[in-house]
Design a protein around this nucleic acid. Structure first.
Lengths: 157, 157
DNA sequence: CTATTATTGGAAATCATTTCCATTATTAGG
DNA sequence: CCTAATAATGGAAATGATTTCCAATAATAG
């Protein structure tokens, strides 16, 4: 059965299997944490959250699983500039609200915002289409982040 | 003299000094390479380019300088997902054309595009203003990247 | 139930980036 | 032009996130 690419039916367990991957306890645990977290977790964050209940899921497995999830598109891998990758659940069965990020370059606080998102997304879709055609790219994803200094960090000066 | 923040007059040498930094051979070399490169160079790329002419500029200095340049806003630090940071000259005296990036997730090829940029930038400016007010952020910068698979990588399958 | 093969965990390896620190170079001010 | 003050340097060593290795284990198809 072909792997790595995924048609995309069913959900989660099903989707996973449908992509030719096996479903294991560790993967289940990771998906569970990610889907509930609503946040931006590092591999280690996940490891810690999982470890109490699943002491025998190793960090290596977490990295591997995150890679897989990222390839399949169930998880976004993000870089906020603090030297470790963050992972965020891409979309639930009902479609999680799309959002973008506001990153404080001082304290690395992250704000998810959904304001203005509609216009942004519409423009992005157009651009995506245009770019895809012009450069013969199959565009699968986009990233928008704003950088700046949050109020607290501004005040500290 | 205060440092880290910069009023922004003069250019390059002047700007550097104006920010309270000293101008050194190494920094000059790095700026020189970056300003001419038009590309996305890693610290090591820069090291290699510089090393023949300035054999005594070390990697450490390059990292340090890039940090400074990044803080001052003369250089953008970028992450294309291949595990090393890339640096790109922010703007020349006449203002370099603004562009965004199209990243192939397979081979990590980067395409700079300027198409559609105008609409994007306009929207971004509005969003920036709105976000800045709502979240009390001093927004200094933004990042837009599209991810996908380039034609060659598509063909390989 | 069994054979096949994906997955695992843990230790060790990688590799980009930082830290340390004694040495050197730049700059302001006389 | 000199000199003191201190920013900047380079190279080695440390750091820390992520990968690689590999023998052991678990999930799946039939």
């Amino acid at each position: 059965m072909p792997r790595g690419q995924c048609g995309g039916q069913g959900w989660w367990h099903g989707k996973f299997r449908g992509c030719g991957y096996r479903m294991t306890l560790g993967r289940e645990a990771i998906l569970d944490v990610l889907s509930k977290a609503e946040g931006h977790l590092s591999a280690e964050d996940i490891y810690i959250k999982i470890h109490s209940r699943y002491p025998n899921v190793g960090l290596t497995t977490i990295y591997r699983t995150l890679d897989v999830l990222s390839d399949v598109g169930m998880v976004y891998k993000l870089d906020f500039g603090d030297g470790r990758a963050r992972y965020e659940f891409a979309e639930g069965p009902k479609g999680v609200h799309h959002h973008h990020h506001l990153v404080c370059t001082e304290c690395h606080k992250i704000i998810d915002y959904t304001d203005f998102i509609d216009d942004e997304v519409e423009l992005l879709n157009q651009t995506e289409k245009g770019l895809g055609q012009k450069y013969k790219f199959k565009i699968t994803n986009h990233l928008i982040q704003f950088y700046g200094v949050c109020q607290e960090c501004s005040d500290k000066k």
